[in-house]
Every structure is written in structure tokens, then in C-alpha cells.
Amino acid sequence: LGHGSGGTLTSQLLDAGVFKLLENDLLNKKHDGAIFNLSGKVALSTDTYVVSPIFFEGGNIGDLSINGTVNDLAMCGASAKYLTLGFVLEEGLKMTEFWEVLLSIKAACDVAGVNIVTGDTKVVERGKGDKIFINTTGIGIMHPKANIDAENIKTGDKVILSGPLARHGITIMSHRQGLQFESTISSDTRPLNKIVLSLLDEFGEKIHFLRDPTRGGLATVLNEIATDARFGIDIIQKNVSVEEEVIGACEMLGLDPLYVANEGLFVTVVDPTVADAVLSRLKEWEYGKMASIVGEITTDHPRQVIMKSLIGGRRVVNMLPGEQLPRIC
């Protein structure tokens, strides 16, 4: 990929490639911006994706950038409608790689049922980027029954985790550091909008809170919830599912799966009266077989997350202070 002087290459790319591949009525109009009608309450979310490596087991930066923003909207209780797509490409990126990313973007949009309605591409000099950076911004329509707010959380609420932890983070780390495990571990990147919206359809306001445990992992999300809601959270380690091979990898690397990033998971805090029903609905979903009620909201130890460990003691699950500095003597 050459540096587009005067944007010749860039616009060529856009015309020939991106537009054609991602075509839909709004994008085809080729305005400077997309023009459309929306009614009711909407949610707007943006995120920039700088993952390295750009290709990894289970996905690449392309589908990650679509799923990530779709999921952020879903966590607000909104159904993603339209996305914008911004690329920063580093000079030297292979066209084939770019196409592969683009194809995943297209596929992810189709699965999630969203359209890219406007976009932008910039090419920067070699060394000023890292192959591809992607920004996506999404707009979504709020589910009429959604009322997602930390203020709704109350003592006795159940905390449900939609699936097994730590796959994405381990995948990325293995690539970056050149690590190998007995069996390949793949990222869990996937859109969560459909399952979340179906839960909202059925359980409405009884779904008190939603969040996806991406960077910082489950531990970080639970601490944020505990802080925002001013309650404590009790977690039972036995109920937190992690796949065998991921446990093995974490053990080998000395990582705690609670702190490892995920891309296709969500945590929901629900009214105890619907907890079992939410769980069975989740288990019917193709990625929800390992969903579980991992814990409960409590008035004890406000703002603290405490985990009952497999061997019986209780551990304080803290927010991670940046890098994992050694602590034990």
C-alpha cells in the first residue's frame, strides 16, 4: 500500500473497494455524511481499535471493530443501526491484508445486522501507525423496555456471566509474545446485540445492568459496578467458567483469568426473581452454554468485590493497578 499523494490512491480504494463491498442505500449516496431518520431514544458510541497483531485466532481487527461498537451499544440497551468506519492505514500494509480485514467487516456487519453509512480512510507514513487502526462509531435505537443503570442495582440482585473467561486476551498475548499452547485458543469476538435484545424483550426492567468485560476483564467490570452501585459483590469462583485450555494457559503464564480481556462476553445484573429464567434463556443461545450465575449483590463490604475461592477462603478482587508488578516476596 502506497502513501496516497493527494488522496488518489485513497479514493480509488474507497470507490473500488470499500464502497462496493459494504454497499447499502445510505452509503451508496456518497454524500459527505449519511442522512437518515431515527425516531425515539437513541444511543451513540465510539471506539478505536489498535489491536496488534491485526490477525489472530478467531478473528481480526475488522470484525473486532464492528462487534466492539455493536456490543457497547447493546450494553446500553440499544440495537445498533448505523456505523461509521474510519481507517488509519500504515504505508506498507499489504493489499491482501486490507481486503481480508474488509471482508471480515462486511461479514460482521451482516451477522450483527448493521450498515456502515459513512467512512474515511487515511494513509500515514511507515512507522507512524501500526498496520491498521480502525475507528467505528455506532448509533442505535434504545429498546423500549431497556432501563440499564447502576442506580437500579439493589442488594440480592444476581450477577450473571454469559460465557467462559479470558479467551481473547490469551489469544492476543500468545500472538504478541509468540506463545504456544497444547490446543489453540481463539478469541471470543462476536456481536451480543441479538441475545441482549431478546433478554430485554422478555425481562425488560428486571435486567438492571449490562456491561461487557473487555479490557481489564471481569474483575475490572465488577469493581466498576461495585463502585458505581455503592454495593458489594460476592463472587463464587466455582461458578466462574473458564475453559480447560484457558485455565492451563493462565496457570502457565501466571495470569489470573479474572483480569484477562474478553470480546464476546457480557455481565448482567438482574432481579433475583428472573435470574434462573435469564440463565436458561442464555443457555439456549449458541454461545451461552457455559453461562452461569457467578455471584450476588450485597450490602456487606460496599464497593468491594470478594470471591469465595475454590478452597474455601475469600479473596479481595481488586482493580488492577496497571501492569502486573510482582508482589510476593
Partner: peptide, 10 residues
């Protein structure tokens, strides 16, 4: 060098 976390100590 030491690897992150407490693995080296363990």
C-alpha cells in the same frame, strides 16, 4: 529480567 506477576517468585 522477570516475568510479570508472581510467577517467578512461585
Amino acid at each position: 529480567p522477570t516475568i510479570a506477576g508472581d510467577k517467578t517468585a512461585l
